[in-house]
Computed example of a mutant assay.
Amino acid sequence: MKSDVTIMDFTGIYEKERFYRGVHVHWIDCRDIQGTNCYCDEEGEQALRRKIAPYSAEAIHFIDSGNYHYMTKLWTEKLREPFVLAVADHHPDMQPPLFQELLSCGCWVNGVLDGNPYVQKVVLLGADKELVAAVPEPYRSRMVAYEESQIAEGDRWESCFPKDLPVYLSIDKDILSPSQVHTNWQQGTLTFSQLQNVILELFHRCRVLGADICGECADALFHAADDKVILQDDSVNGRLLHILMALGKERKA
């Protein structure tokens, strides 16, 4: 994985943060694209593909709040080798779509499995047990899920990643407990240290092609009292960026 950093700005939240200061970043302003919040129509998809066309998927991407987690689908479309998609998220993002013609933050993983010829399987890391149970049956044969209790208890989930296949890692910060960070979606119970262990083990076992991070609490933009929330987001982003850049350089060396 390259140490290149891309920031996709849908809401303006990153302008309130500092984690990327001192790092060369590619800033992609997406605020001029209509029809992207939670659901993304075909016109929005094409506009976003044009925005990211100059940039590599094999890098670190910050993609704003969980409302835009579907960007992982568009980034992984740019990969050209078989891979495993690892999703660290409180939600499986594999619910049946309400509107078949729209890409959404709640069903984008289904879209990856349906449309990407290179993805071999999806590994869900830390998803809620009840939400995993609701994943539609047709997708279960290409999915492996390790619930948050298994991650928290240190169950050996690493063996589900074949050593001969690279991995693309997608992280939604809603996997973390509200004591660690606040997002605009229902959250899990993991600590940052537990998420960090997942990342370290994944890099230890696998060649990681690229990674993205979402889960900004964009709602805090509208509440001056939520400066603390933005500071938490900023801090967690900085720690994740530091870990990913260090591991990416270590693997290259």
Rank of each mutant, 00 (worst) to 15 (best):
A246L: 11
V112L: 08
R156G: 09
R80C: 14
Q100M: 11
H24F: 15
D128K: 05
A253P: 11
P97N: 01
E15A: 14
Y139N: 02
I33T: 05
V123T: 03
T189E: 12
A47H: 03
V119F: 02
H61S: 14
Y168D: 00
L240K: 03
E45G: 07
G115C: 12
L195V: 03
Q150C: 12
E158V: 12
D164M: 04
F83E: 02
V144E: 02
A57V: 05
G66Q: 03
V5F: 02
N67S: 11
A246W: 10
F62K: 01
F62H: 02
D9G: 07
R49D: 09
T76G: 00
D114V: 10
P92W: 00
E15G: 14
L209M: 06
K129S: 14
W27A: 13
R31I: 01
L102S: 01
A145G: 01
E77D: 11
D233H: 07
L98R: 12
F10V: 04
Q187D: 05
E130V: 12
V87L: 10
P96V: 08
F222C: 13
G248H: 03
L98W: 12
E81Q: 14
F203K: 01
V25Y: 02
K249Q: 14
V229C: 03
A220R: 04
A57F: 04
P54H: 08
L190F: 03
Q180C: 10
M71W: 07
E58N: 14
A224N: 10
V84E: 01
E45V: 15
L48W: 02
I63A: 07
F222R: 13
H26P: 05
